[in-house]
């Protein structure tokens, strides 16, 4: 059964690592929904959050193959119940004098921020998990989405759980 999985991966923070990971996914035919990467509390280490689609066989293979990369320190599949997921999305929608107030109201409800306004557009920044972002996009779609940019999911485990203490 094909499922969506969120992997948190600690890697050495130096050049070439992203291309090693991306190359591994492409040559073995694994599908990436999104991949984010950035420095962690330890500047020599980066964390990648990779959202993949696959059955249990594929997930197991992805984890094992990632482990074989010399620059990969740790690979964890996040448990959705015990993790927080966030994504930041910028949406530029058509907004004239008539629709501006309505869009602004939707943004308020979602605690989204309006970060740019022009005569014909509004650009909204929304942060949240997947369902919140999707709900927001669905609501503003009728106004006409001009452009959309999303960061992909980044994630941490809740509470005392830390990637360092897990396998």
């Amino acid at each position: 059964m094909i499922n969506r999985h969120v992997l948190s991966v600690l890697v050495e923070n130096h050049s070439g690592v992203l291309s090693r990971v991306a190359g591994l996914f492409s040559r073995r035919g694994y599908n990436i929904d999104s991949l984010t990467v950035g420095e962690t509390e330890d500047t020599t280490v980066s964390r990648m959050t990779i959202v993949v689609r696959g059955d249990d066989y594929t997930l197991e293979q992805i984890k094992k193959q990632l482990h074989k990369l010399v620059d990969v320190i740790r690979v964890v599949t996040l448990d959705p119940e015990a993790s927080v997921y966030r994504e930041l999305v910028l949406v530029k929608v058509n907004a004239d004098a008539d629709s501006r107030a309505a869009i602004s109201e939707i943004a308020d409800i979602f605690r989204a921020k309006i970060i740019d306004v022009s005569a014909g557009t509004m650009t909204v920044e929304i942060t949240g998990d997947e369902s919140k972002v999707k709900a927001f996009i669905d609501l503003v779609k009728p106004y006409g989405i001009r452009e959309l940019a999303r960061t992909g999911i980044t994630a941490l485990q809740r509470g005392e759980r830390e990637i360092k203490n897990l396998n």
Binding site: G16, S19, R20, G23, L24, R27, L69, V70, D71
Partner: peptide, 11 residues
Amino acid sequence: ITGITMPITKH
């Protein structure tokens, strides 16, 4: 060459 040999080297 590091780019070229990435998939055919252990590292």
